[in-house]
Design a protein around this nucleic acid. Structure first.
Lengths: 146, 146
DNA sequence: TTATAAATGAGACTGAGTCTCAATATCATA
DNA sequence: TATGATATTGAGACTCAGTCTCATTTATAA
C-alpha cells in the first residue's frame, strides 16, 4: 500500500503501526476522503460521498476508522445537539468553540480568549482538567428570531 | 379533577386551558411526580418510578406531557451529551449552566456572572438572541483524570 | 345526552450507533 | 513465495431514545 506523505498521513500511519494495525484499502479511502475535505462533516455524508464515487465501505468500517482518526487527534467528534455526531479537523486548526442555533442547526465557530480564560477558571474551581474541554453554546440565530 | 393549588399547578392548568386541553389523570400523575422531585431527571427514570408505584402511563404520554411542561417553562430539556435528554426544573431556580464529565457523566451545575457576560457578548457579535442560550462544558473530572 | 374533539396506549417505526461472526485480507517470517 | 496467526471487513442483527399511527377511550360544551 502506497505511503501517504502528508503530515496527517504520517500521524495516522504511526498510530496504526503503534497498534499493530494495517493501512488497508478501506482505511485509505476513508482517510483520504476526510483529509481532502476540510469541513465539518457527519458520518452519513461520508458514507454517501463514498457511495457516489463507487468506493464501497461499510458503515461499521467508517465508524471504526473515525474512532482511530479521533484517537490520533486528527479529528474531533462533537455533539452539536443535532441528535448525531459531527466531526471536524484538528491538525493545523486553532482551538475554537461552537455556537449553534437550536432552530435551524446553523453552526458558528468562534475563538474567544476571554471566554477560554473564564472556562479554565470554572474547570479549576470544580476540579476538572483545565486543558481538556469543549464548550457548546445553544441559542437562536438572527433568522430564527422572527 | 381536583385543582392543584401550587404555583406550578396554576401555570400548568393555565397552559392546558389556553390550548383547550384537559387535566387528565395521566397528566396529573406525571405533573405531580415531577413537581415533587426537584432534581435533574431522565424520561426513563420517570417511567420506571411510575411503574413502581403502579401508576401505569405510556411512554408516549410521558413524552407528550413533558413537552407541555417545557412549553410552559416549568422544566427545561437539556442535552448533557449522554445520548438522551435530561430535564430540570426552572421555576424558582436561578439561571445556571452545566459542566459534565465526558468519562463518568458527572454533572455539575454552576452560575458564573463573568462567563454569562462574555457569552452574551459572543451571542451579540454573532447576531444571536442574547437572552436565550444554554451552555454546556464537557471536560474530565478529577476522578477520571487518573 | 350527545356530538365533537382531545387523549391515550400499544406497538410499529426511525435513525444513530454498536456488535457479532463468518469470510477475507494482511503481515512477519520461514 | 507459502504459511499461519492475527487483524479486518461487511452484512445485518441489535439497542436505545424518541416519534408516529391509529383504534379505542375519555372529556367537554351545548
Amino acid at each position: 500500500m502506497k505511503k501517504n506523505k502528508t503530515k496527517e498521513g504520517e500521524i495516522f500511519l504511526q498510530l496504526l503501526k503503534n497498534r499493530g494495525l494495517s493501512f488497508t484499502r478501506q482505511r485509505k479511502i476513508i482517510f483520504e476522503h476526510i483529509i481532502k475535505n476540510h469541513d465539518h462533516f457527519e458520518v452519513k455524508h461520508i458514507i454517501e460521498a463514498l457511495q457516489k464515487r463507487k468506493l464501497r465501505v461499510s458503515r461499521a468500517t467508517v465508524y471504526r476508522t473515525l474512532a482511530h482518526l479521533e484517537d490520533c487527534r486528527l479529528i474531533r467528534k462533537m455533539d452539536l445537539g443535532h441528535g448525531h455526531s459531527h466531526f471536524e479537523h484538528i491538525l493545523g486548526y486553532k482551538h475554537h468553540e461552537h455556537l449553534c442555533c437550536e432552530k435551524c442547526g446553523k453552526i458558528v465557530e468562534f475563538g474567544d480568549s476571554i471566554l477560554e480564560k473564564r472556562i479554565k477558571k470554572i474547570l479549576e474551581l470544580n476540579l476538572f482538567n483545565k486543558t481538556n474541554h469543549n464548550v457548546r453554546i445553544l441559542g437562536i440565530c438572527k433568522n430564527c428570531q422572527k
